[in-house]
């Protein structure tokens, strides 16, 4: 849509109830605010604070075919305007998730997107098949930021060739909307996004955490037991916005933006830059009601700026 047209529509609309719903790969979200995987548990943990029906989508903690114990402690450390985590993909496994967690999530009218991963292509395929057969899973998000056991522990998401292979195989295994979560730990993220698109992804989400490290100078030891961890929080937001911009220009599939979103204004930066939806992560830890406040803030912005439809601001960046 041309910039002039958007502005003209925005100015005359001035509605009290702007449309907030967006479509992601065939999934209709009532608003563009989702939860970021790994920061919202399996939904239940936050249900005391948040009416889960109000969310655009719930993205649950990453799951694998077999349960994972995770890394030793310390697993997290705060850094300036951010935090490092090395949880080590601890999870209850897909079977237990389907049996014990999914029934709770089924009572809500909010789409459930399951983040999943594997050590091998085969584990990804098995996970996708199993999740696709479960009642109450509406979409899949592939975490490709983990190492491939069969390819010398090279990370799936940083090598275009092995990334393409795993996405193609998962694509064949599921009819659910397939979102590929991109790693920011690459030189050219737009290339990775194009590879994901060509390999069959319906959408890309970005960014995952940025690999980082903190040192205890007294002990002269890394603070995290895992040595390195993933940086999240407000510190990474400008990097994330830049990457969303690069990816938005490079692909036709919808982009889901995340990385350090704390407020509605942060979310709006991503939406204006081209993200069709956003995910709130670390902010959930700081304020368990962050998602709801962000949804309200986005609505307020649309009213104040005279937009009747969220889609009119998505990708409306003037450059």
């Amino acid at each position: 849509m041309g910039m002039k047209e958007t502005e003209a529509r925005g100015q005359k609309a001035g509605t009290k109830n702007p449309r907030l719903s967006v479509n992601i790969a065939g999934l209709k979200l009532k608003n563009p605010v989702m939860t970021a995987s790994g920061t919202f548990g399996y939904g239940e943990e936050y249900s005391e604070f948040v009416d889960l029906n109000k969310l655009g989508a719930i993205v649950v903690k990453g799951l694998s075919i077999t349960p994972r114990m995770g890394n030793p402690a310390p697993r997290i450390i705060e850094t300036p305007a951010g935090m490092l985590n090395a949880i080590g993909l601890q999870n209850i496994g897909i079977t237990t998730f389907i049996k014990e967690k999914l029934p709770f999530l089924r009572q809500f009218k909010t789409p459930v997107i399951v983040n999943f991963f594997g050590d091998t292509v085969n584990e990804y395929v098995q996970a996708a098949e199993k999740l696709s057969a479960a009642d109450g899973v509406h979409g899949l998000e592939m975490n490709i930021s983990c190492p491939n056991k069969q390819a010398g522990w090279r990370v799936f998401g940083t090598d275009p060739k092995i990334m393409s292979e795993v996405i193609r195989d998962v694509r064949k295994a599921t009819n659910l909307p397939l979102i590929v979560k991109l790693s920011p730990n690459v030189t050219d993220i737009s290339l990775m996004a194009r590879v994901a698109e060509e390999s069959g992804a319906d959408s890309v989400s970005l960014i995952n955490t940025i690999t980082a490290m903190s040192v205890d100078i007294k002990k002269r030891k890394p603070i995290l037991a895992n040595i390195t961890g993933g940086l999240s929080g407000p510190a990474i937001k400008p990097v994330a916005v830049r990457m969303v911009w690069e990816v938005y220009k490079a692909v036709k599939i919808p982009v889901i933006g995340m990385g350090g979103i704390m407020t509605a204004n942060d979310a709006l930066e991503f939406l204006i830059t081209g993200a069709r939806a956003v995910a709130v992560g670390t902010a959930n830890f700081v304020n368990p009601m962050a998602t709801l406040e962000i949804i309200q803030g986005i609505e307020r912005y649309l009213i104040e700026e005279g937009f009747s439809d969220i889609n009119d601001i998505i990708g409306s960046l003037k450059v």
């Binding site: 790994g38 920061t39 919202f40 548990g41 943990e45 936050y46 005391e48 604070f49 903690k61 995770g70 030793p72 402690a73 310390p74 697993r75 997290i76 450390i77 705060e78 935090m83 985590n85 949880i87 601890q90 014990e100 670390t282 959930n284 830890f285 368990p288």
Partner: peptide
């Protein structure tokens, strides 16, 4: 331990516990 959320979501604050005794609890 260092904590981020305090409500069991982030899995940041963990301690290794022997599970023979906790079989039932650990299921949940």
């Amino acid at each position: 331990e260092n904590m981020a959320c305090g409500i069991g979501a982030c899995l940041g604050c963990v301690v290794k516990v022997r599970s023979e005794k906790l079989e039932v609890r650990s299921k949940k």
